[in-house]
């Protein structure tokens, strides 16, 4: 029995690492008396997996985990008990039973982000629309991806254009941040971090963005079924 569960990660808790999250949930299952299934062996650990971990410092309204139960507990009770023990910034918002077909990680292929930033160059809304159309006219934008391969550091060039679903400008919010909405590839079949997008835009368009002050929040994740972007089932 698997409960596919959506949860938030907001406020200061955006600074928790993936490992911190695993530890937090492990303890919370025990504290909340969730009948979670344990693995066999010397060091039994609870069976659950978090899909598509966020980069440190990114907020989210759409984190997902699959929780495997040893015996039935209805999703409402599950959510209620867990939320009592979880901190305010991490709360379960939806949970339903699913047949185990594919792992979350393999299913999640698109993420929808809200990106907020400050710019010394853009002021009027039109300024950004103009920049955006210039961006859209570029047929290819390469970034350098760094990866550690064993002890060696490997660099490779990657065209990020195919990793972008769409980008729209939402205007300024009440804290005077520019707000972008972006649908970006996410997961095993290609992954673009919002900050990488912003770095590339800064390089190409010279928007004078303060890259230390970019606030990112994941709003939703989607799966890709034969080229069609769909809600996670």
């Amino acid at each position: 029995m698997i409960l596919r569960t959506r949860f938030t990660k907001v406020g200061y808790l955006k600074y928790l690492s993936h490992l911190d999250m695993v530890r937090l949930f492990t303890r919370t299952f025990s504290k909340a008396g969730i009948p979670i299934k344990f693995s066999e062996g010397y060091n039994p650990h609870p069976k659950f997996s978090i899909g598509n971990p966020l980069p440190l410092g990114t907020e989210s309204l759409a984190e997902y985990m699959d929780v495997e139960l040893a015996y039935w507990m209805d999703p409402e009770t599950f959510i209620e008990r867990m939320n009592k023990s979880l901190p305010q910034g991490i709360q379960l918002i939806e949970s339903k039973m699913v047949e185990k077909r594919a792992s979350l990680t393999s299913m999640i292929s698109w993420s929808h982000y809200e990106i907020r930033f400050m710019s010394d160059k853009l002021d009027e809304e039109d300024d950004f629309e103009e920049a955006l159309s210039k961006w859209n006219s570029l047929s290819q934008v390469n970034i350098t991806k760094k990866r550690k391969k064993g002890k060696k550091k490997v660099e490779r060039q990657l065209d990020i254009k195919p990793l972008i679903g769409n980008i729209t400008y939402k205007g300024k919010d009440n804290e005077d941040f520019h707000v972008l909405s972006a649908l970006l590839k996410s997961g095993e079949s290609g992954n673009l971090k919002p900050i990488e997008l912003m770095e590339a835009m800064e390089r190409e368009l010279d928007l004078k963005v303060d890259l230390d002050m970019v606030m990112i929040k994941r709003l939703d994740v989607f799966t890709d079924e034969d080229g069609e972007i769909k809600e996670l089932a």
Binding site: G11, Y12, L13, Y15, L16, S17, D20, R27, L56, G57, S85, P87, Q88, G89, D212
Partner: peptide, 15 residues
């Protein structure tokens, strides 16, 4: 991130 392990500074732990 400019500092490693930011969860050192955030508090808000259980209890």
């Amino acid at each position: 991130m400019k500092v490693e392990k930011p969860s050192r500074y955030i508090g808000m732990e259980q209890n």
